[in-house]
Design a protein around this nucleic acid. Structure first.
Lengths: 204, 204, 204, 204
DNA sequence: AATGAATGAGCTTTCATTCAT
DNA sequence: CATGAATGAAAGCTCATTCAT
């Protein structure tokens, strides 16, 4: 589906993606039919297949767009920050803001995670962001700024916090601050303290 | 569908639920057909509709069972612990263990979250666990053991960490320890310190 | 699609194949829709897919049945005949009778030949009959009963005569005799004559 | 669709017909879409409908062209030959050569025969050639050159041989000779012999 | 003449559910 | 309790044809 599109065509394609993204987010992937999408835009069914090979391809296109956009935001934020810890916070905060601003995209990420066929694409896109975050965390560990741990696990934990808070609609400005604080303290671990907090014990 | 079931009937019902749970977890709710489920067990379609009103009812039954089991585990753990912070850790650790042991059930939670029709039921079941955790956190705050914050948000953040780590298959024993550590530090916040970590700043 | 069928099921399947064969023969493969078939039998659309994986599978099933039947008829006839030439005539005559009795099946053979996807199956089925005929012809050549030539080509030529005469509805009893005569003279070639007919010359 | 075409227009039309003929021959009539044809030539859909009223009209135009060409070849050959038998052989040989040179056109004849909508046109075009051949055969019969039989049936039998041999790709130069020999012997029948070959018997 | 966009009826196929036995 | 058979709405998708530019 490598079609040469006119300006009008580009516009239509964007329309389809935007409208479909909202429907997918609201109702899920399977319950949203192609018929519903084209009817919502008041166009014929053929229009859909003029722009996309399949419903699946449409979903992947939306997913790809969203992930690209998020990564751009995260990357911009990190680039402007100073030391590793600041970069971690900046990246985290930027990700939270983007996610809070695009809750419907987070829904799509969740949908993609629930669909065997989409999980691969989702993970591929996520991997870049996770790697980036993990790299900053590893750097901070080497610099002795934070406690030693598995950087990837820490990065995933932060993403987990973020996704959950958005999903539960807790990420207003105060929520972002609280979420960032939770994550940063989690990241810091017992760094700089002489002893770990007494409550944290290892599994037998 | 409140049928008086014989012992054999109970067994059949359990079989259906177990088999279906695995299929749902592997392939998703919509892609898993009733035909597939009954064929997998080598029985006719009538059997299915003898035990369940619909495919939806089956899913909800599985969901309900799983949530009930998780809550029991969490409750047991909390009951045996001492002060609020210990209860938080105990509940968290128990939840992580259960979830790590039942990754397919976490998949069902995710599926339910992706389906408008199931979200209500999912949230109802979750609410109990969240409330319980939030109560412990609030108590710890009042006791000055941890920094002031929104208890519900903190509870959700911990759930977010847990779900993410399980979904990414990071929750082996070491992973549980690391996850618990991340969460507890996040919960502790700046408690007992005179100043917040310099990197944690508020949103403009 | 290996379904255990009850007697009633077998009957339905036969019904579907018979009705569809007629429609295919009358209107062609593509112009005949599944909807048309099931409506013609007054059953729901699901019935079709209970018995066949697809429209294509149905066509192939019909084709296979027909070819099997034709081969049986041809084989029976050959087995009862005496010398090679008699076997050739017997096989040819039996094939012509079968084809004249089942003109709709010849139509299906033609349809199959016109569809890339079916040609393979068609040829596979034909190959057996062609080989059988060619073997008899070769034997007759070795015995000096007929002129030397390519046995496969001769066999195909006879099939060509038969198909054409059926397609043009020329195969009543007299037509069968005339067709058989044409083929046998063609087969005999100049056998037993001292010189080839003067009109038959080789290509420059 | 009787458009006044410029030289360039004529060229385009020929291009369309040639390309489409190949596609039809390769994939069949229905499986070949108009979109496929115009994309193959790198032009827009408008071009197609500028030159042809419909996909059906295009097919018929190709068919008509082909039949006209074949008849011309056959007619030329017959005109140059001497007595009836020679004319029969010449026409037959010319037809075989043309068909062997244009196997894709034979495929189109087969496709047309499989489509109720095209069969009429196909037959109309064929009729001329069949009549011509039958006339020569009848003349030869009257002259006592060949055995008495139904001239039309004989003509059709020869066409059947030809089509089959081309379809099975057996018509190289040697194949043409063998095919012609088969047909001529078939045509000659028992002419000039005092008794019919013993193997040729009438139907009970 | 020619293009990209659009139409919409109709196609094959799926599947939750019901029914007769 | 259980089966194989049947239902039919609805899904994703195709494609000959038309339209606006």
């Amino acid at each position: 589906m490598d079609r040469r599109l006119t300006r009008r065509g580009e516009e239509r394609k964007r329309q389809l993606m935007a409208f479909a993204a909202q429907r997918f987010a609201d109702n899920g992937y399977h319950p949203t039919s192609v018929a519903e999408i084209v009817e919502g835009l008041g166009v014929g069914k053929g229009v859909f297949y003029w722009y996309f090979d399949s419903k699946e391809a449409l979903f992947l296109a939306i997913l790809d767009d969203a992930q690209r956009d998020l990564r751009r935001r995260q990357g911009d934020a990190i680039r402007e920050a100073g030391d590793p810890l600041e970069r971690i916070e900046a990246g985290l905060r930027a990700s939270m803001r983007w996610t809070a601003e695009h809750p419907e995209m987070l829904r799509l990420f969740q949908l993609a995670a629930s669909e065997a066929g989409f999980a691969v694409e989702l993970h591929r896109g996520e991997q870049v962001a996770v790697d980036e975050a993990a790299a900053q965390i590893a750097e901070a560990m080497e610099a002795g700024l934070i406690a030693q741990s598995d950087p990837v696990l820490i990065a995933q934990a932060m993403i987990g916090v973020m996704h959950r808070l958005v999903a539960r609609r807790l990420l207003d400005d105060a929520g972002i601050d609280a979420g960032v604080a939770f994550c940063l303290h989690g990241v810091l671990g017992a760094a700089g303290t002489s002893a770990p907090p007494r409550h944290i014990s290892a599994t037998g």
